[in-house]
Design a protein around this nucleic acid. Structure first.
Lengths: 105, 105
DNA sequence: ATTACTAACTATACTTTTTATAGTTTATTT
DNA sequence: AAATAAACTATAAAAAGTATAGTTAGTAAT
């Protein structure tokens, strides 16, 4: 997509990156867990998500550089997902969404 | 849901109101059309949406007081959808999302 | 008086996404 | 050898979204 047109659709494009049902919830959950969290911690923090979707979303968000995956060898092997600068910049937007809900709903 | 618990989940609850695929796009489209727009204008402004989904989303957003529906009698009969105060307060959040995309993607 | 036109939908069948639930893998501890 | 733990993966079913065509109501043109 050419640069000029990109600007027009940037909301649409932004939502392609973080507009799926659980994207912002995952970022928020990791943030509440100090910016770095394990698979099962995220699973517990979001009561309605199921492991299949979480796994798929994490993989996708890693590809989009919203998360960094860290393997912690040992037994059992552990994984940690860390927010990137890119996703940290969404925290403020997430907080505004919460404020909007508190005020209006 | 009790008030105390509500706060914890307010992102989840906020996304229930405006987290579906086209909700923010519809609000943005109407805003670009000066805060009030016709069905077919919105349909044209969002190239990928189809009339079935638009119709359903508009109905739902009206129920949630994100939009006000106005009937304009005449021939053919026209409808206009207007942003409410509640949805106007989302415009700033939408703009921040666009800025986030411009900066990071 | 039929035909055409327009806005705003609605119907139907199909595809994609998400859910629910159970099972797998790897490597210890007991 | 059996149990435990973390991080998934498999399968079938339900929900959401897509594509395309058709409906309704009321003029306006032929």
């Amino acid at each position: 997509m050419p640069k000029k047109i990109e600007k027009i659709y940037s909301l649409q494009e932004a939502l392609k990156k973080i507009g799926k049902k659980y994207d912002l919830l995952i970022i928020d959950a990791i943030n509440q867990l100090n910016g770095r969290a394990r698979f099962n911690q995220i699973l517990t923090a979001i009561p309605t998500i199921n492991p299949r979707i979480l796994s798929m979303r994490l993989k996708d968000m890693e590809r989009n550089r919203l998360l960094t995956k860290h393997l912690i060898l040992g037994t059992p092997i552990k994984t940690e997902y860390e927010l990137t600068e890119k996703s940290k910049e969404l925290i403020e937007i997430i907080d505004r969404l919460k404020q909007w809900y508190q005020k209006n709903c």
